[in-house]
């Protein structure tokens, strides 16, 4: 377990400013850039921003935010988390990330996914009924574009390509690409089929539950003759000085977001008891640096994961608290997890 990588992940949630008002979308985006700059200074390995098309989240165009971060950082890898490939054009996704790769001296990375929301479908004129076909065709095309050689392709979800050469080329000749998967076994198998690394989105329940998915990924890669890369996981959390402080700050802001999204999906409001249970046994890494590190180390060991990304920004959590969580993650949590796993 020598080289585990640690990342931070955000959707650009709209935070409260220090005067208690909700930030504008523009402020929220600039705040994310500032957090990424701090993460870079602290030596965190990856900063990921996820695409959403909802009022609670400021980031709909991850690579534009990453481009901003790219020119202000030195070492940190710049990732999406995820790029909703189904409702995007694989050619443009490649071009935009290859551009970020240029701006960042080779630090760009794409995490392709189907997304956990569906707003992008009507927004970009796609039909939910084509959900499976859209992803299947587009991931296939994307995998061919990654060769950085002229591509000929035809399908039902975009115009055909005839010997199309796509620019800019990356300097390394390889744009790092992962696939993010929720709980769908079929998606795990598909990821292995293309030989992409697998990022498991573990947003509820005990992480052990995903061990069979890690197994499925490895077995499928074996069957397809592709490479089984180290698995990544991403899960939500929040860090403050003490467990109580972390929970007191985080819960009300998380609840606003969770209940709003829950209402869309028909879930009753989340209770404090459910939250406490998720923090104690599930997939919310909320607490002091020691608590969060202990739980992360145990999850990483259980899944044999090679990368852990913490989604640190749920809901309206104030800017300064978020910034401090980033700092504690880099200065205390990550070194502690490394110690525990050493």
């Amino acid at each position: 377990m020598a080289d585990i990588e640690f990342g931070l992940d955000t959707f650009g949630d709209i935070p409260q400013t220090d005067t208690g008002e909700l930030a504008s979308h523009a402020q929220a985006i600039r705040h994310v850039v500032a957090e990424a700059v701090l993460a870079d200074q602290l030596g965190i390995e990856v900063f990921a921003v996820g695409e959403h098309h909802r009022p609670e989240y400021a980031i709909s165009s991850p690579e534009t935010v990453l481009a901003g971060i790219a020119t202000q950082t030195e070492r940190i890898r710049l990732s999406s988390g995820v790029t909703v490939l189904s409702s995007d054009d694989p050619v443009r996704v490649f071009q935009r990330f290859a551009t970020v790769d240029a701006l960042s001296n080779g630090r760009a990375e794409v995490i392709l996914g189907r997304g956990s929301f569906t707003e992008s479908f009507p927004l970009f004129g796609y039909d939910m009924n084509d959900y499976d076909t859209l992803f299947e065709e587009k991931i296939e095309l994307f995998s061919r574009l990654l060769t950085e050689r002229p591509v000929s392709w035809s399908g039902t979800t975009r115009a055909a390509l005839h010997d199309a050469d796509v620019f800019p080329k990356t300097e390394s000749g390889h744009l790092s690409t992962w696939v993010g998967v929720g709980g769908s076994p079929q998606s795990v198998v598909r990821t292995a089929q293309y030989g992409f690394p697998l990022m498991l989105a573990i947003i509820g329940g005990s992480p052990e539950r995903f061990a069979p998915y890690a197994d499925l990924y490895r077995r499928a890669a074996e069957q397809f003759g592709t490479t089984a890369h180290p698995i990544g996981m991403h899960s939500p959390g929040f860090i403050a000085r003490t467990d109580d402080e972390a929970k007191e700050i985080f819960f009300p802001h998380y609840k606003v977001m969770r209940d709003r999204i829950g209402a869309l999906r028909g879930w009753p409001p989340v209770t404090r008891a459910e939250f406490e249970n998720e923090v104690a046994h599930g997939s919310m890494y909320v607490g002091s640096p020691e608590t969060v590190a202990r739980r992360m180390a145990s999850a990483i060991a259980t899944l044999g994961a090679g990368r852990f990304d913490l989604i640190y920004s749920a809901g309206t959590t104030p800017m300064s608290d978020r910034m401090r969580a980033v700092e504690l993650y880099g200065t205390e949590v990550v070194p502690l997890v490394r110690d525990i796993l050493a």
Partner: peptide, 9 residues
């Protein structure tokens, strides 16, 4: 199409 998935899960 589901044999491996079922065998593992």
């Amino acid at each position: 199409a589901i044999e491996l998935t079922i065998d593992v899960l």
